[in-house]
């Protein structure tokens, strides 16, 4: 039994180890994808053969506040040389925060053959594994994607509003200061500024990074995760859960943890998150 299998996850197959990746570097059926918050990291050195998917440049619509559409996803898939059969393995900085975000966006297009490299960049680097500045180029592919499906793992503000008080469980994965509203507006940073501080009524506060081990970026074991989300916060696998943060990126990490590591079947990411809710007129807010 591998270390990952021994941690008791509901879907251990969705994680691969750094060692697994090291053994699949030249595997044409596998594409390693780095996704970071910091755009400097990939060009400064990445896993040999890995391509970059950038959260701002690749995954977001350049004009509207939304994700790329089907044509955009097909273009991205072609650029990184994948087909629907390719196993894509995401990794990145910050405990795989952005890797989970990219993974989540890929799931909007049904690319189920996707995994996360446990520990991300941090673990790979700590183990002294090779990094290169050579940017690989793969032959473009023809990828036929379905239309983006926003119904299963994504939720919009109006539906969140309707669900308040119906027993839905909201998980606010921001910092405690953001949750309490102590941190309201961000001076000199209008793009992500918000007019009201606080949280969506009834939301529990579980900062996203609690699901990861800070020393090597790996995910905590299922028992440790249950202690946080179930014993401490009272969630259970049958709950309908909505995770949110500021713009929906940190909450995709929690979505990943609840969906795949603990096996919750009904978890959605509210990517409008606090930058939408805290700026919306008339919606209820709790502090």
């Amino acid at each position: 039994m591998t270390d990952i299998e021994a941690r008791g996850y509901a879907h251990p197959e969705v994680l691969v180890s750094t060692e697994w990746v090291a053994q699949h570097l030249g595997d044409p059926a596998v594409r390693i994808i780095e996704s970071n918050e910091d755009p400097l990291l990939y060009p400064s050195g990445h896993i040999p053969g890995a391509v970059q998917v950038d959260w701002a440049a690749d995954l977001n619509d350049p004009l509207r506040r939304d994700y790329l559409d089907r044509a955009g996803f097909e273009k991205l898939a072609s650029r990184i040389g994948i087909t629907p059969e390719t196993t894509v393995v995401f990794y990145g900085d910050k405990n795989n925060w952005w890797a989970c975000y990219a993974f989540w966006v890929f799931q909007l297009f049904g690319h189920e053959n996707a995994k996360i490299m446990d520990g991300g960049r941090l673990k790979w680097e700590k183990e002294g594994r090779p990094l290169t500045r050579d940017v690989p180029s793969y032959p473009p592919t023809q990828y036929q994607a379905p239309e983006r499906d926003d119904s299963k793992i994504r939720i919009f503000r109006d539906e969140v509003l309707k669900k308040l008080g119906t027993g839905v469980k909201l998980v606010d994965v921001r910092s405690p200061q953001e949750y309490t509203g102590e941190r309201t507006h961000m001076p000199e940073y209008p793009q992500e500024g918000v007019l009201r501080g606080g949280h969506i009524p009834g939301a529990k506060n579980v900062p996203w990074a609690r699901a990861a081990n800070p020393e090597d970026g790996t995910f905590k074991s299922a028992a440790e995760l249950k202690a946080i989300y179930e014993q401490e916060q009272g969630l259970s696998p049958n709950d309908e859960v909505i995770a949110y943060c500021r713009i929906g990126e940190r909450s995709s990490h929690t979505w990943f943890v609840l969906t795949y590591l603990l096996g919750y079947p009904n978890v959605r990411n509210y990517d409008g998150s606090w930058t939408e809710w805290g700026n919306s007129v008339g919606v209820p807010i709790e502090r």
Partner: peptide, 22 residues
């Protein structure tokens, strides 16, 4: 001016990073 950060790193720099660099 501390907000020179946004000229150097671009407007797409994330909020957390922008605050730290400032």
């Amino acid at each position: 001016p501390c907000d020179s950060v946004f000229t150097v790193f671009g407007k797409e720099v994330s909020m957390g990073k922008g605050m730290g660099l400032m």
